[in-house]
Computed example of a mutant assay.
Amino acid sequence: MNKRVLLIEDNEQNRYLVSFLMQARGWEMVQAEDGPTGVALAGQVDPALILLDIQLPGMDGYAVARALRSDPKLAATPIVAVTSYAMPGDRERCLAAGCNGYIEKPIDPQSFAGEVERFLEET
């Protein structure tokens, strides 16, 4: 089973926390600090799931999600937005851009990995 998760997140502390929580559950983490790097890595590393921040430098998460969805190899890969955007309509914008789900920041360390794994069970 593919145990690789791609995390596209510009904040170093968030990358550390998410990676720590997922690695504790046996996931291999691949990290990108910006959208273009994340899109390039996604095509190379064949992730089982992509965790995507929306507020990214250079290319926002909506554009990243659309770019990932345009790659036939990644069309079925779950993309989960992990974002501090929590205003009405933000969730819908994430889903419209191609994300399968949405987890609000700050993340809950107790439940985060389980929430992420649920998206893998749905595919």
Rank of each mutant, 00 (worst) to 15 (best):
A48K: 06
R66P: 01
I103L: 14
I107F: 08
D90E: 09
A81D: 08
I8F: 09
L21Y: 00
G26N: 06
L41H: 08
N11D: 03
E121K: 13
Q31D: 10
V18E: 12
G58K: 05
V64M: 13
I50K: 00
V82L: 11
V80T: 01
R93S: 08
I50Y: 02
S19H: 02
E9R: 04
D60Q: 04
R118N: 11
Y62H: 14
G61I: 07
N2T: 10
L6F: 04
L56W: 05
E9Q: 12
R91W: 04
V45P: 03
V82Q: 03
V18H: 13
K3H: 07
K105C: 11
Y16R: 15
S70A: 15
G58I: 07
T83N: 01
A63V: 10
G35N: 11
N14C: 12
R66T: 14
Q23A: 12
C94G: 04
D34P: 03
L68E: 01
T37W: 14
I103T: 08
E12Y: 10
E28T: 11
F119T: 03
G89L: 06
S84V: 11
E122W: 08
S111R: 14
V45I: 10
G98A: 06
F119W: 05
A24H: 09
R4S: 14
P36Q: 10
Y62A: 07
V45M: 10
F20C: 15
P78R: 03
I103N: 01
G114P: 03
A96E: 13
M22V: 03
V5I: 15
A113E: 05
T77H: 06
D108V: 08
N14M: 07
A97M: 06
A63P: 05
C99T: 01
Y85A: 15
I50L: 01
D10M: 14
E117N: 09
L56K: 00
M87S: 07
E117C: 02
P88D: 13
V39K: 02
S84H: 05
G43M: 03
N100G: 12
E115M: 07
E117R: 07
D46N: 12
G89Y: 13
L56G: 01
L21K: 02
R66F: 00
G98S: 13
N2A: 07
E9P: 05
D60Y: 04
P47R: 02
G89P: 08
P72F: 08
A96T: 13
A63H: 11
A97P: 06
E122N: 11
G43Q: 05
L49M: 06
V82W: 01
A40H: 12
A65Y: 02
A96G: 06
C99N: 00
G114M: 01
G61R: 03
S19A: 14
Q110Y: 12
A42Y: 06
Y85I: 14
L120T: 00
Y16F: 15
G61E: 04
A40E: 10
I8V: 15
G43V: 00
